[in-house]
Design a protein around this nucleic acid. Structure first.
Lengths: 213, 213
DNA sequence: GTCTATACTACGATAGAC
DNA sequence: GTCTATCGTAGTATAGAC
């Protein structure tokens, strides 16, 4: 399975170094293969990069499917179910963001979010659109917010869930740690869960002021 | 001022392409200079990269100084002042994160957060340590949380403030926009301000349950 | 200080043997 | 399918003219 081996190595290499920084020779070498195998199987470096994007989208979609799939059956008025689903999804996200095993995927996507290339379309169409859309719909149901506000809040919620990655080096230094261990991962998860609740409460209160009077 | 021109171009190039992706020839060309000027002034590509990190830290520290400097005079019991200061800082952060002019700085730092190199130490020591520490202290004063929780929540708050950058491409697509315009920037800022309040309220309630009974 | 020349290495692509 | 060999084109670094 030379193509699969190449793809695994490529995801790690592109995640770490980016498209321009990674080298086809290094990737082929790490996959115990020759550089020309990349040309044969993927048509070149660019093709390998796009294949890596497809695979990342696929892996992420599979990983989140359990929680995301049930979301579209939630009734528009069932705000408790929507909130429970949001909590479940963000808990899973938070677990993944403190797991070094998925760091390459995060880096790959973060790069594409800031500097979208053709690879972003693959990941967006294959995964991000679905999860962002699902989350925003759940936020609408859970809080009564309008769609635009829900989209912004969804992005903010995702941003805070990604914070163990996007501020990784700073957070580790502030905590005096070198890696996320089991204890700190639990602390991060409970903090984020509390934040999700607080943010949704606040938003719901803004959209249904009568409930508070 | 060849060195300054080189540095300006370098920050943009390194921000966009990363250390390995950027080329000294391209940087020198865009700065209307010869490549060997990089060697002369900065000792090489690596030196230029570190100089770019120093300059970014310096620029950011200057930009935030107005709001951050007053923070250490806030009394440990003055939770209203701490909260107001947090709101002011996050408002400024939120403005910067929807401003394309500072995108290179964000990209540079985000890269270093995920993959720290020697440049991260420069930025952390010159800016991040100060602002993360200040924010965490303000969170402690505003909510009564312990230091570790405050550090995690600070990272989460920063993560959501950065979300217009870290999820930029997805958020723009969800909103059906191509760029952040004035209207959407205002909407993002008001959303984030509400979230900051909600998160601090929630955290304060957890740490002072007696106030609610 | 700044440039031009050049040296050297590494890159990605490709042709052709097996 | 997979490898070796090679080509052309980047890349950084350096020496030396001005």
């Amino acid at each position: 399975m030379t193509p699969n081996r190449l793809l695994d190595v490529a995801i790690a290499a592109f995640g770490y170094h980016g498209l321009e920084g990674a080298s086809t020779r290094q990737i082929a070498g790490a996959a115990d293969s020759a550089m020309s195998a990349i040309t044969y199987h993927y048509g070149g470096k660019e093709g390998l990069y796009l294949a890596a994007a497809d695979r990342i989208a696929e892996t992420l979609a599979e990983g989140m499917a359990v929680h995301v799939d049930g979301a579209d059956t939630i009734a528009p008025g069932d705000c408790l179910a929507a909130r429970a689903k949001l909590q479940a999804i963000f808990r899973l996200l938070s677990e993944k963001m403190t797991d070094d095993g998925t760091a390459d995927h995060s880096r790959f996507i973060l790069r594409e979010q800031m500097n979208p290339t053709a690879a972003f379309d693959r990941i967006y169409d294959g995964f991000l659109e679905h999860i962002f859309g699902t989350l925003a719909t759940l936020v609408v149901i859970a809080t009564g917010a309008d769609r635009r506000t829900a989209a912004i809040v969804t992005s903010a919620l995702v941003g805070q869930a990604m914070s163990p990655r996007s501020s990784k080096a700073s957070l580790l230094r502030q905590l005096g740690l070198r890696h996320y261990d089991a204890e700190i991962r639990a602390a991060i998860q409970s903090c984020l869960a509390a934040n999700v609740d607080a943010m949704l409460d606040g938003l719901a209160a803004n959209n249904r002021p009568k409930d508070l009077s």
